[in-house]
Every structure is written in structure tokens, then in C-alpha cells.
Design a protein around this nucleic acid. Structure first.
Length: 390
RNA sequence: GGGUAGAUACCGAAGUGGCCAAACGGGGCGGACUGUAAAUCCGCUGUCUCUGACUUCGCAGGUUCGAAUCCUGCUCUGCCCA
């Protein structure tokens, strides 16, 4: 086992903020495995690359002999969050949450070491609480404290509603830290406030305060907003190799440097940016699938796009019989059969009229065309998608 | 509880009786160019049986030849007062 100083040096790498390093060092010197807490929200079962930034750091802690504690926020998820101004977030059933949690773990263990991971559900302690205890818990923090939080404040300034239960989230999360006796809590930089509340509550309970360990937030594919499912700018760790590869190839060069740093933990190499990007994509596919699939995805990308040779690329097969006779029906069917995507006929028509659709390497721009479909033909739909007729 | 402002397409936001499937911006998508990058230019962005038809402007009714626009009720939200 490395010395506390060595451990700190390793852990510091790539982190955004640690409050405080001195405290962390003191804890590392205790010579026992530390409890490293990471809270997860079981509303969406898919882990994306943004979240892996935290998971990888957590793995590093594990490799240094520490204990990861994954807290599944089943309690909060069951309450649901009715605020979502545009979309009401559905209250999740217990079954859904358990299923999500399970799939979450499966994905997380692509990165984490199961032997050093403890998974707990916060319903374990919150479901037991009665109203008196809840009030008492609430009395420990002030409204001013909660309103200090950036996103609440900005919502108030914008005139958006903030529901009372939302300001309890930090308290709930903080109490989790008390219950699992967290030595360190990890999170993205947006978690600073919540994690600090955990410290306050631990202090009030007369226990040592957890160290705040923040990782940078990974920007999504758009390069602007943080990677998130709702913005649809994410890469999921379970996505198919070619899909993952393709998404990674579409990022900007500036963003690529970030991805190198946060996902691979190294500097972006010199040389042609495209080669660097291919290597990034290949390695990440290899990490979440396998070396072979990484190499295959790279190879496939090269034939499909660099050589523009769709015929020999691997494409989803779609039965000729499902296409109908006209080109619009065929495009709609190809999207749904080949990619499980629902396109309206209007969308399909636009793609055709605008020259995106190709059959047997020739553009079909007449929406009324019935060009005849044969097994073996390649039907190109848009920039990234094509199917092979079978 | 009282007052007041508001609810428009993915988001922001115009429109306040017919010229509105609804300006403009963002986002998204497609084309050209390329490295499936960036930048730039062009086009599209409710649905369909697509030079036309149909359904949309919080919900339900009503007035009118005609309503996103006027009236009534309801739901939701902000702000001010209590």
C-alpha cells in the first residue's frame, strides 16, 4: 500500500477540487480503508461517460485499498420530483427502481471493483423516519443556507418555481453521509453544495466531517453543456460499439482535449487531430466492450466514412418485405426496423427531397419514387445511418 | 384569502378578430465543403393520401360567416399584499 502522501498525489490527479487536501491526508493517515461515498440517482439506468469520470476516480480509491459506498437514492426517486416545469417527472415504482439499480450496478462494475463496493439504498433509513424526525432534521439547516445554492437562486431570479421538497434534497443527501459514516464524498463540481450540507450534518452528529472530493463535469457532445441524458448529448457505456465510436468522432477538436484528459487521464497527443480522435474512440470502445470490438469499430469507421465504402460496412439488415414500395415508406421502415427510431413521413420526405437518401449509392430525391428494392441493396438514410436489405 | 401579470411549436419569444401552420432567435436535421471536426454558405424543422387537405397556440364551453386573438368557467405559474 502506498504512503498517504503518495495516495494523495495519485488521487489529486484530474480532480477539480478537494476540501481539503490537508483533511484528506489526515484521513489517509488513519491507515484504515476509508468510506468513499457516491450517490446515484436511479431514475435513469444508463450510465454515460460523464458519470464515469467520478466512477473512475472511485475505482482509483478502491485500488488504493478503500471502500466504495454507492448510495442508490431509491427513496428520493420514489417521491418523484413534480417540479420539472416542462415535464413532470414520473414517480417511479419500487420495481422500476430496483431494476434500474441492478442495471446501474452491472454497468458500474465495468469500472468499479465489486469486491470493494458496498451498495445501499437510502430508503433503508428514510422510510423508517416519522414526521417528527423529519421536522427535526429540517431544523438543522436554515432557509438562507438553502437559498444560497446557485441553482435555486437562479431559478428564483428567473421567476421559476422552486418546490419545498426540492430544497430538502441537500438535506436528504447530507443525511446519507451521516448514515454511512462517509469519510469522503465524491461528486461532480455541481455537488459542492450538497456535499457541504453533509459535512454540516455530520458535525452536528458529532462525527468527523467528510472530505469533499469533486471531479470536473464532462461536457456533452455539443461541447457546451454538461453531458446529460435530458440534453441528449451523451454517450452511454452500453451503447453499441459503432454508435459509441461514431458519437465520439463527431466531437470538436477542442472537446477532444477535454475527453483525453477526463476519460483517459492523459494529454491529447500531437499529430493529426483525426488520428487522435480515432484513437480516443477506439480506446473507449475497447474499455466498455473489448479490444477486438474497439479495433472492429475503428475498421468499420474507416470503411464507412474514410473510404466511403458502405457496401462492405457492417449495417443493420432490414427485410425487403417490410419496406413497402415507395421510397418514403421504405425510409420510415428502415429507421424503425434498423434503428428503432420513429420518423414521421414528413421527416422522411424531407430527407429524400434534400438528398440525404441513397439507394445503391445513388441519390433518390423524388419522394414519389418507387425504385424497387432488392436483397443486398444498401439504403442510406442520413449522414450516419444506412441499412442493408435482406 | 385579496390584487396583478402570464400560459404560443423542442426552448426562448412575437402575434391580440380574417393576409396564421403562426414572425424572429436558439437548438435540431439535411445539402455543399471537410477530418462524420471547426468555420462558412444554402435549405428544412405540426401531420398526412403534400402545389392541396387536416389538426394545433394551457383545458372546457360560448360569441362570430370566421378566434391563438373576444366572452365565461376551470387548471397551472410568477410577482405584490395578508
Amino acid at each position: 500500500m502506498q504512503s498517504p502522501e503518495e495516495q494523495l498525489a495519485i488521487l489529486k490527479r484530474g480532480s477539480a477540487q478537494i476540501l481539503s487536501e490537508a483533511e484528506l491526508l489526515t484521513k489517509l493517515r488513519l491507515g484504515r480503508p476509508l468510506n468513499i461515498k457516491l450517490g446515484v440517482d436511479p431514475t435513469a439506468p444508463d450510465i454515460h461517460l460523464g458519470f464515469t469520470v467520478c466512477l473512475q476516480k472511485l475505482r482509483q480509491f478502491q485500488d488504493l485499498g478503500h471502500q466504495a459506498i454507492l448510495i442508490i437514492g431509491d427513496f428520493t426517486a420514489m417521491i418523484g420530483d413534480p417540479s420539472g416545469r416542462s415535464k413532470t417527472r414520473p414517480q417511479l415504482s419500487h420495481d422500476t427502481i430496483m431494476a434500474n439499480a441492478k442495471s446501474f450496478q452491472q454497468q458500474a462494475f465495468k469500472i468499479l471493483d465489486p469486491a470493494r463496493t458496498r451498495t445501499v439504498f437510502n430508503g433503508e433509513w428514510f422510510e423508517m423516519m416519522n414526521f417528527e424526525q423529519i421536522i427535526r432534521l429540517n431544523s438543522r439547516v436554515t432557509l438562507q443556507q438553502m437559498l444560497h445554492r446557485e441553482d435555486f437562486r437562479s431559478r428564483i431570479e428567473r421567476g421559476d418555481s422552486v418546490r419545498l421538497h426540492e430544497i430538502q434534497y441537500p438535506i436528504i443527501q447530507g443525511w446519507d453521509s451521516v448514515m454511512v459514516k462517509a469519510d469522503v464524498e465524491m461528486g461532480g463540481t455541481d455537488q459542492l453544495f450538497n456535499i457541504l450540507v453533509g459535512r454540516d450534518l455530520q458535525k452536528e452528529e458529532g462525527m468527523p466531517e467528510q472530505v469533499v472530493f469533486l471531479m470536473p463535469l464532462l461536457e456533452g457532445l455539443d461541447g457546451v453543456h454538461k453531458m446529460s441524458k435530458s440534453l441528449n448529448n451523451y454517450v452511454g457505456v452500453t451503447e453499441a460499439p459503432s454508435e459509441m465510436f461514431g458519437k465520439l468522432m463527431s466531437i470538436s477538436d477542442a472537446l477532444m482535449a477535454r475527453y483525453y484528459l477526463l476519460l483517459l487521464g492523459e494529454e491529447m497527443p500531437q499529430g493529426h487531430p483525426m488520428d487522435a480522435k480515432k484513437d480516443l474512440a477506439r480506446r473507449l470502445v475497447a474499455r466498455y466492450h473489448s479490444e477486438e470490438e474497439g479495433a472492429a469499430a475503428l475498421n468499420d469507421f474507416n470503411t464507412r466514412f474514410s473510404k466511403r465504402d458502405l457496401d462492405s460496412a457492417e449495417l443493420p439488415g432490414v427485410p425487403v418485405a417490410s419496406l413497402g414500395t415507395d421510397i418514403i415508406s421504405a425510409v420510415v421502415a428502415a429507421y424503425s426496423e434498423g434503428f428503432q427510431m420513429t420518423k414521421s413521413r414528413g421527416d422522411a420526405r424531407r430527407l429524400v427531397e434534400q438528398g440525404s437518401v441513397q439507394l445503391r449509392s445513388e441519390k433518390v430525391t423524388d419522394p414519389k419514387a418507387s425504385p424497387g428494392f432488392n436483397a443486398g441493396d444498401v439504403l442510406r438514410l442520413d449522414k450516419t445511418r444506412a441499412v442493408r436489405l435482406v
